[in-house]
Design a binder for these strands. Sequence first.
DNA 1: ATATTATGCTCTAGCCGTGAACAAAAGCCT
DNA 2: AGGCTTTTGTTCACGGCTAGAGCATAATAT
Lengths: 410, 410
Amino acid sequence: MSVNGATTSGELRAHNRVRLLRAVHDGGSAATRSRLTRELRLARGTASVLVAGLAEDELLHEEPAPEHGRGRPTQVPGPHPRGPLALAADVREDAWELAACELGGRVTVLDVRPHDGTPEGALVPLGEAVAAHTSRLGHRVIGVGVALAGPVRFGGLADIAHLGWRSVDVPALLGLPRPAPGAGADGVTLGNDTAFAALAEARRGRLRDVRVGLHLHVDFDLGGVLVVEGRPLGGASGTGAEFGHMPLDASRPIRDRPCMCGATGCWGMDVGANALLRHAGLEYGGGRGREQAERVLATSEEAVAACAAALGRGIAALVNAHDPEVVTLSGHGPELAERAGETLLRACEPRLMAIRRDHPPRIEGSALGWRGALLGAMESVFDVFLTPEGLERWRKTILTRVPTRPAGEM
Amino acid sequence: MSVNGATTSGELRAHNRVRLLRAVHDGGSAATRSRLTRELRLARGTASVLVAGLAEDELLHEEPAPEHGRGRPTQVPGPHPRGPLALAADVREDAWELAACELGGRVTVLDVRPHDGTPEGALVPLGEAVAAHTSRLGHRVIGVGVALAGPVRFGGLADIAHLGWRSVDVPALLGLPRPAPGAGADGVTLGNDTAFAALAEARRGRLRDVRVGLHLHVDFDLGGVLVVEGRPLGGASGTGAEFGHMPLDASRPIRDRPCMCGATGCWGMDVGANALLRHAGLEYGGGRGREQAERVLATSEEAVAACAAALGRGIAALVNAHDPEVVTLSGHGPELAERAGETLLRACEPRLMAIRRDHPPRIEGSALGWRGALLGAMESVFDVFLTPEGLERWRKTILTRVPTRPAGEM
DNA sequence: ATATTATGCTCTAGCCGTGAACAAAAGCCT
DNA sequence: AGGCTTTTGTTCACGGCTAGAGCATAATAT
């Protein structure tokens, strides 16, 4: 995203290749070539050359459009059958999921496995699965994106307070190269599930085309990020997305209680599966009790209301500060909003600044459900790939794979 | 900023003109041509053509560099004597200041006047001054930027709770065209002083080249914004920068007290001139009492400590959430930090997440002092101007002003 | 079957940045 | 002082890129 401008005429071509491929990807490879040509304001001739080049590089493959208008039928550019694949993994507190994703966003789940919540128990088998699929799929794998249930610093160190993970060296346990600062270099991207869910929401969900949005992810604890112009704000060391660890008008019992993160009175202590279990008087922590929490969510009016009210109070504070256009909820968030929407709004509205009350932001459930984090991990891999540098690397591997054209070809 | 890429070869030229002019402006017209050529990675020939074109358009004017190295001496491109000027105004609670700013950032103060704090009393005379200077300076005026002490919605409606301004139609009172959503259209940009101070800090202060920074502006009340990649985040309707209106662990007496903004327990109620006056038992509100507040700041250890502690508590919360690299303070902020830095840090540190404590962000005073808001207003005008569209408009006015070249010229 | 319409392909014109060769203008060395 | 070195500015031939026009193509509408 935000591919910054070409400077020389040589870079123009690379820049336009990226634009076209990005448009295909973002459109879920559903847009027709004529439509892409129009939307990207390309001349038909230019589009022709670009598509031909991308097809030759095994990035795109055109098929006839299923529906016709009046004139000559157009083609639909989609992923090439030998084209790039992004591996994406979502590591939750009690299980992980691994998938292969084509350009355009089609997801094929490769593996789902429960784990014991320890760094080794979760990550070593995942690393083995990644290695197996990578060697099976060969050069087509352009990178691996991994979503984790807590902050990951740029080096790849993860801290998941409520699981007791402290400075866990994720790349080492996975057996993957360490991602470089900025954007993961060799195609390895690690990130917070909240940030990834927000990224997916920005690309394929309710935050699409929204300039400023707020995304909140409710799982065992609560994560939140601001999404600006299609990108979640990652922070200076890659560990933004921690809105849950602000003391936002905490409820009385929580206000002075230490949070596992090391701070006090964190908002997130009042929202999420752990909070539901606490309200119901059950044991909580350590990433255990997903089923019990879901039962509480389904049955305990009171626990749900307490969570929803806390959620609403915090949302008001964040809306005051950031003025988002939309607030989206993922994880357990949509269910909280559905089961206790009134409570949520009654907690939120009076805490808004007067000038926000006229046009409060919409509060919406995610369009992607629990799939958000996985899809965001995919997007983060394609974000590295869909750049002039990424495509150039791919072109080189293709060229070495097929060193010369078949003899008879012109 | 973030001029998005050229697509056609024609746009390349426009894009590079912008890049060069932006580099001159951001460098305070101190960089030599040879250095600019290197830094922008232009061929010397290209730079030659670009500079010549910009000089012909009366945008740039080269003068010999004062210092020489070994080889042929280079030139320093600076503002053209008939070049563009940005008018910038800073409207504070009790006075306003109007200045003309050249490309490169040189500021000439045109007028300073106290006012009575009412919308009419403040804005009508300012509008008259703007009109007078605009007609005097003619086509050179490319826009007017106005900083106000509170949020301004995109249409131009200002709400300054602590002055009792509600939906004040700023463009109407100033007699200026209404700015369009997004970026002010005809060169009129209105904004929050906090956001503008942050913008200036990002371009010419301590947030330069910082990816994620947090800027806090302490005046009568407290404003705060996140600065990401050189731009303060404006929110969906232009009214972001309101970190002061989150209930961040407010001190006991404030916690349940209504804020003038309409919410409850706002952080800003504990930090700023109004809070100082309140701590000292003096009357406060309505933008009055700047001198008394300064006296309290200079003399009352206790009031200063209370403010600094509240500031530190809030900073901790924001650092947890956003992971900034630097926190900068403007307005009274630097003095608070200087007079009670220990108190501030002692309030901040224990409230940080454990993972933030290893590398907490630097907390620094602004490099621009009280000038920040004015400079930011200037930058916002140049941000609209330093685009392909802005430069094209300027070129057209120059062409109509000098319709044909002198006869003898080739 | 023919006209209409929208799309894809091919080719030329025009613009742009590159990079090399050359000119210019200083400092440095003898 | 005079020649050498170093750095910068200027000019120009060259290759690359996109635009746009003209033509070919393949469907629908009449």
